[in-house]
Nucleic acid binder design. Structure first.
Length: 473
RNA sequence: GCCCCGUUCGUCCAGUGGCCUAGGACGCUGGCCUUUCACGCCGGUAACACGGGUUCGAAUCCCGUACGGGGUACCA
């Protein structure tokens, strides 16, 4: 058996849909698993819109996901003449014919004849001449059926009497995707067509054309279960968060996204979900793909992304997060950002975020000029309701005034010591960290203080403590 | 309406006639750790749509019903 050739054939809609990305991924996984070839073909049937921008909108997300293609991008629009030739050949051979009936006329005829809505071959023997507005329809067989031996769904049989004489060339002379598909898949030697279930109904039509064109055995089809939203409807551009680019800008890692997508409709037998792509490639098979639609759960994506972030080296994390860390909308002046500081605290941040976009919120107090706002709830809890916060802050100030702020362990023991000493003196539990934290960060929770304080430096720390102390009085 | 597809915990996946008193993950939740928040660790929660068959034995095979989805275009 020759090695498989698969293709991902998206329409240039201006962005890459997560559902399309999943289809691309499964094609890629199959190609890489079998040592086959992955072809990228842009299905730009109505040419006008194939601008570079639309092409980039497909290739960039694919590259981001690491789905490298072996051939292409090929463009359907550039092969138009071949599609037209195929249409003409079918007409010449009597396998297709011209039709000048409008939609309205077709509906009227159906109603008049008491037939179900749809086209019922009315122009088959009318000898309509070609011309503007005249379409070409394929003469679908009246009897028998076409069987699709789907690699995922098994045998799917469609009776020919349920397939009307469908249009294969529009009134303006442009071929529709059905004929383009058959011609292109044949010419490109495609052996496996892996795509979404929404296209299952079109498979018999393409196969019929394939056979009429004398192309021999059609490719093996594999229809992937659809990705649905919470309402169990096919993901839609309007209602759902489907542009892959959105996930890029929200700080998801390509490896995490790819891993998450691979788990929709497929799962490894050993139940290890988060794993290197090489292992996924090795275990992947079309036969193991599910048939039921899958909901793309953002919570699970967050978890997977968080795991990938935790597994990064601090340097890799900082580099990946820098677009957000130095963004214009970061909660501090981008010029204040200091990579050395971010690197030193990276591990503390990594275990607290699930996306890269969340990173700035944990480090902001290190890059901000001063703490101008205090979280009210946290202030109330640590200061208003806390035990002797004024004394805690005073004692910390006294204890740290001479400190050189280079030893994180000493900073920790000094601050904790203040709490312990006060607890003994007042015979009650006194927390020293809480008032310090709100003074330094303005918040009630965050990364550990000690290492961060060495980077903030003595002067800044004492200034902030003094500012908070003044606010108490 | 017609055609096609599907149905295991709330969600994603494992399970291909006996190893299933159905397993893992997310979520939710109880606890431990912790002078913050997290992480980590231990535990809990919850499903084979329903009805018939086949079989010694069915989540796994067959039929039907219900429900859900996709398609039904001169969009792809």
């Amino acid at each position: 058996m020759t090695s498989p050739r698969v293709r991902f054939a998206p329409a240039p809609t201006g962005f890459l849909h997560v559902g399309s990305a999943r289809s691309a991924l499964f094609n890629w996984l199959y190609a890489r698993h079998t040592g086959g070839t992955f072809v990228l073909r842009v299905e730009d049937t109505d040419e006008a819109k194939t601008t570079q921008e639309f092409i980039d909108a497909i290739t960039e997300p694919l590259e981001w996901l690491g789905l490298d293609w072996d051939e292409g991008p090929l463009f359907q629009s550039e092969r138009r003449q071949l599609h037209v030739d195929a249409v003409n050949r079918l007409v010449t051979e009597g396998k297709a014919y011209f039709c000048d009936l409008s939609r309205d006329e077709i509906d009227a005829k159906a109603e008049e004849a008491g037939l179900p809505a749809g086209y019922h071959g009315w122009s088959r023997d009318r000898d309509v001449a070609d011309g503007p507005g005249v379409v070409v329809r394929f003469r679908a067989p009246d009897d028998g059926s076409t069987v699709i031996d789907d690699a995922i769904r098994g045998r799917v049989e469609v009776a020919h009497d349920t397939i009307e004489d469908f249009v294969i060339r529009r009134g303006d002379g442009s071929p529709v995707f059905l004929i383009a598909n058959a011609v292109d898949d044949h010419d490109m030697g495609i052996t496996h067509v892996i795509r979404g279930e929404d296209l299952l109904n079109t498979a018999p039509k393409v196969v019929l054309l394939w056979e009429a064109l004398g192309f021999g055995d059609p490719p093996i089809y594999a229809h992937l279960p659809l990705l649905v939203n919470e309402q169990r409807k096919k993901l839609s551009k309007r209602r759902d968060d489907v542009a892959l680019a959105n996930y890029v800008s929200r700080g998801y890692l390509p490896e995490a996204m790819r891993n998450a997508l691979a788990l929709l409709g497929w799962g490894p037998t050993d139940e290890v979900e988060i794993r290197p792509i090489e292992e996924i490639i090795e275990q992947f098979s079309l036969e193991a793909v599910n048939k039921a639609p899958a909901f793309f759960d953002p919570k699970k994506l967050d978890h997977i992304n968080a795991e990938y972030i935790k597994a990064m080296t601090p340097m890799a994390f900082v580099e990946a997060a820098e677009p957000w860390l130095t963004a214009d909308d970061a909660p501090y002046a981008a010029a204040n950002y200091d990579r050395t500081v971010a690197l030193a605290l990276a591990e503390d941040v990594q275990q607290r975020v699930s996306t890269l976009a969340e990173a700035p919120a944990w480090l902001d107090w290190l890059f901000v000029d001063s703490v101008d706002e205090y979280d009210e709830k946290a202030w109330t809890k640590a200061i208003v309701k806390g035990k002797v916060p004024d004394r805690v802050l005073d004692d910390i100030t006294a204890a740290l005034t001479e400190d050189d702020f280079t030893d994180r362990d000493r900073l920790e023991s000094v601050v904790m010591g203040v709490g312990t000493t006060l607890s003994e003196e007042l015979d009650a539990r006194v927390m020293s960290q809480a008032p310090l934290r709100i003074a330094l960060t303005g918040k009630g929770a965050g990364i550990p203080l000690w290492e961060a304080m060495t980077h903030l430096g003595r002067d800044v720390c004492l200034e902030r403590i003094a500012a908070a102390r003044a606010r108490i009085d």
